[in-house]
Design a protein around this nucleic acid. Structure first.
Lengths: 249, 249
DNA sequence: CGTTACTTTGAGGTCCGTCAAGGCCGGTGG
DNA sequence: CCACCGGCCTTGACGGACCTCAAAGTAACG
C-alpha cells in the first residue's frame, strides 16, 4: 500500500525544511548554512497533547516542525477553543506572535513531535551578514499573509463542501511541497478540530465527508484519507457559491 | 459639529505614519529618521478611481498612504471583484505582495490620495545599519498576519450584525491610532464594497445597518457614520453566534 | 469489558442569499 | 430650472444551507 502516514514521516532534512527555506531562496553557501545550523536548537520532543507554547508566553523564538504535527488555537472569551492552524513537518510555527513579544496562540502537539527552536535575536544577528536570509523571512511572512487573505476570501463565499475540499487539497499541497505522498495520508486532527478550523460544526463536517465519499471524490476510513478524484475536488474547491452546484447533475 | 471626514484629513506627519512606525518601536534617532525620509519618494497623487498598482505588476516597493483612502481587491476567476482590504491615512499597502515579486492584488483609490513609495532594496540596505528598523518590519507584518487570522476566526462564527459591528469598530480603532476622531467619520467606500470585504451581500449590509440604527447603536446618513453606543457595539462584535443574541431583550 | 471520547445520523429552526421592485440622490442635457 | 437618467441604496418575500438539539453507533483506552 502506497500511502504515507504523516506521523510516521521521517525526520525532515534541512533542505526540505522551510526554516531552511528562510535562507535558501537562491541557495545558500555551505558556510552560511552551517552558521544557521548552529543557532538552531534541535531535538526538543513535544508529546502528544503537550504544549509547545501557550498564549501569553514570551515569544522570542520561532519554531520549525521536524516530525509530527501541531495545531494552534485561541480561546474565546466564552471559553471555546478556536483552531487557527495546523502544522506539518517542515513548517514554521510562531510567526504571527512576533509583533508584541508574546504568543497570541497556544500550540499543542497532535502527535508526538520534534521541533527546532530558532532564537530571534541570534537569527537577527545572522541576518545582518546574510542578505538573502532577512529577505526570505519577509518573503515567508508575506506568503503567509497572502494565504490568510485568500482563505479569508473563500471562507464566506464557499459552501461547506467547497471549504472542506479546499482544506484537504491544502494539506495535500503542503505534503507535496515536502516531497511526501499527496493522495493518501492520515489526518492528524479530529473532526471537531477540522470544524473549528474551518468555522463549521462537527456535524456539518461529518455530513460533508459522507457526501464527498458517496460522490466518489474521496475515501475516508476514520482518519485515513484518499483523494480519489482530484480533478473534481479542485473544481469543487475553486467555485464558491455561484455557477457550480456541489453536484451539478 | 465635531465629526471628522476621512477624505478631508490633513497630511499625516511622519511620526503618525505607520511606515515611520516601521522604524520607531522605541524611537529612532533623528539621523536615522532623516535617512529613512530620504529614501521615501513622496507626493505621488492617485486620483479617485485610479490604480496605485494592478495585480501582476512588479512589486519592488511598499506604499504608505498619506492622504485619502484605498481599497485592494482580487478578481475571481468568474470575474467578480473581491475586496480584501481598505487603507486609511498612515497605513502601509503592498506588504502581502512581497513574496513572489508581483502584486497579487489591485489597489484603487477611493478618494484622491497621496502616497509615499518605499523602494524595497533601499529599505533593505538601510535596515542593515538600523536594527530597530528591520525588527519593526517583521513586527508590522506579524501584526497584519495576526489581524488576518483574527478576522478569519470571526468570519464564520459571527453573524452579519457582529461582523459589521466589528468592521466599524476596526475602522474606528484605526482612526484612533492616527489620532483622529473615532466616533463620527465618513465611510470612503460603498455598501457593495463593504459587503464584498465582509463576505456578505449588499442587501444584508443594508439591513444590518438599518437594524443597528433602529436599535440606537449607530447613526448613518449616506456615508456618514456616528457610533452612538460603543459599549453595545463592542459587546455585539465580541460574541459570535453562541450565547448572546443580536438583540438580547 | 466498561468507560470515554469521537463520529455519525436525523429532525427542525434560523440566518442570510437570491430575486425583484422601488426610493434617493447627483449629473447631464434640454 | 426642470426632466430624465443611472448609480447607489433600501425594502420585501422566499428558499436553501447550515446550526442546534438529540440520540445512537463506533473506536480507543484502561
Amino acid at each position: 500500500m502506497e500511502r504515507l502516514i504523516i506521523n510516521e514521516v521521517q525526520e525532515v532534512s534541512c533542505d526540505r525544511c522551510s526554516i531552511s527555506a528562510l535562507c535558501l531562496p537562491g541557495e545558500l553557501s555551505d558556510a552560511d548554512r552551517a552558521a544557521l545550523n548552529q543557532i538552531v536548537q534541535r531535538a526538543r520532543p513535544v508529546r502528544k497533547g503537550a504544549c509547545l507554547f501557550r498564549a501569553g508566553d514570551r515569544a522570542d523564538s520561532v519554531f520549525a516542525l521536524r516530525t509530527g504535527s501541531l495545531k494552534s488555537f485561541r480561546v474565546t472569551p466564552e471559553g471555546a477553543e478556536h483552531v487557527t492552524g495546523f502544522f506539518l513537518p517542515g513548517e514554521v510555527v510562531g510567526l504571527e506572535s512576533l509583533a508584541n513579544g508574546a504568543h497570541t496562540h497556544t500550540a499543542v502537539a497532535l502527535d508526538t513531535s520534534l521541533v527546532c527552536r530558532i532564537p530571534l535575536d541570534q537569527f537577527d544577528a545572522l541576518s545582518v551578514r546574510i542578505p538573502t536570509m532577512r529577505r526570505q523571512l519577509v518573503r515567508v511572512m508575506s506568503r503567509e499573509l497572502n494565504d490568510a487573505q485568500e482563505r479569508l476570501a473563500d471562507a464566506r463565499h464557499a459552501g461547506a463542501p467547497a471549504t472542506f475540499a479546499g482544506f484537504l487539497l491544502d494539506l495535500s499541497d503542503r505534503l507535496q511541497r515536502r516531497g511526501l505522498e499527496t493522495r493518501c495520508f492520515m489526518l492528524p486532527m479530529s473532526r471537531g478540530e477540522i470544524a473549528s478550523y474551518l468555522g463549521l460544526t462537527q456535524e456539518t463536517v461529518s455530513r460533508v465527508i459522507a457526501r464527498l465519499q458517496q460522490d466518489g471524490m474521496i475515501a475516508i476510513h476514520a482518519r485515513e484519507v484518499r483523494i480519489v478524484d482530484e480533478q473534481a475536488m479542485r473544481a469543487l474547491a475553486r467555485c464558491g457559491l455561484h455557477g457550480c452546484r456541489p453536484t451539478p447533475e
